[in-house]
């Protein structure tokens, strides 16, 4: 088998354990959560699943406003790196260009990395196609605190295509255990909470919703159309009872999941 480069996806695919952040000025420091206004560094774990050695494969790193869909034209390029891998080799690759973390979208941003080489190129086009393209991986996990059980998380939906598109956005409960592969890169102080009970959850349109808004929240937003380059916003709200809960938010267009993010809500009282 020739060169076959990969950065592994997660479960769901936007929870890749193989792209992560090192906050602070030391790129070789411990992984953790980026802090707005400070420097952070991006890393990726890159594999050559083939048997042929590859010299100087390119790894590119991006961050994006976690509008649940974005492409190479809307994501922000941070920097690139090179890696040389023997067949079957797996290595961590550092992007030495620092990511100056900015405060947008309530501080929730996602990261993405892609690897390629002339002998194993990327598919054509600006779309990342994370779930179908092994070259690309994305991490789009946000951790929020639930105070007195209530949590909320604002996000955007973006149409990066050149055509108007009808979207469906829906939320589904996940298992806290799905985050386990990411724990080593969530910071030294991070402790995965026990599975709590997700009592209620859903979407509202308010960007800073009150706990009472849960009553109007629905786990699926009504279908809506976005013009090319258009954006719209929602807030995921919910209530948990103890421990933590994982909620996956999926963006569907034309019957396919085109983007997603996950929110890990942790009970503030239990920490």
């Amino acid at each position: 088998m020739a060169v076959e480069l990969e950065i592994q996806d997660g479960n769901p695919w936007w929870l890749s354990p193989d792209v992560w952040v090192v906050p602070g000025p030391d790129p070789t420091g411990p992984p953790g959560t980026p802090i707005a206004g400070q420097t952070a560094f991006l890393w990726a774990r890159v594999r050559n699943n083939g048997r042929t050695r590859v010299d100087n494969a390119t790894v590119r790193f991006y961050w994006a406003n976690p509008a649940v869909g974005f492409d190479r034209t809307t994501a922000t390029f941070v920097g690139s790196a090179n890696v040389t891998l023997n067949g079957g080799q797996v290595e961590d690759v550092l992007c030495l260009a620092p990511w100056q973390v900015v405060w947008i979208n309530d501080g929730h941003e996602c990261i993405l990395a892609e690897v390629f080489h002339p002998s194993d190129p990327l598919p054509p086009g600006p779309a990342f196609n994370v779930p179908t393209d092994r070259h690309v991986a994305q991490r789009n996990l946000s951790v929020v605190m639930a105070v007195k059980g209530f949590f909320h998380f604002a996000f955007e939906v973006h149409n990066p295509t050149r055509q108007p598109r009808v979207y469906r956005v829906f939320a589904e409960p996940g298992e806290v255990e799905q985050v386990k592969p990411l724990v080593p890169t969530l910071g030294r102080d991070f402790r995965l909470p026990p599975q709590g009970k997700l009592a209620e959850f859903g979407f509202v349109e308010a960007t800073c919703p009150e706990p009472e808004s849960i009553a109007q929240a629905r786990p699926e937003a009504p279908k809506f159309e976005l013009q090319p380059g258009g954006r719209t916003g929602f807030s995921l709200v919910g209530r948990i009872e103890g421990g933590g809960a994982l909620i996956h938010v999926s963006q569907e267009a034309d019957g396919q999941i085109v983007g997603g993010l996950s929110v890990l809500a942790i009970s503030a009282e239990g920490r």
Binding site: A81, L94, A97
Partner: peptide
């Protein structure tokens, strides 16, 4: 090899 540089404005020809 050179893995990476700290500014995208420095473009290294990989080798």
């Amino acid at each position: 090899y050179v893995e990476s540089v700290s500014h995208p404005g420095i473009v290294v020809t990989p080798r």
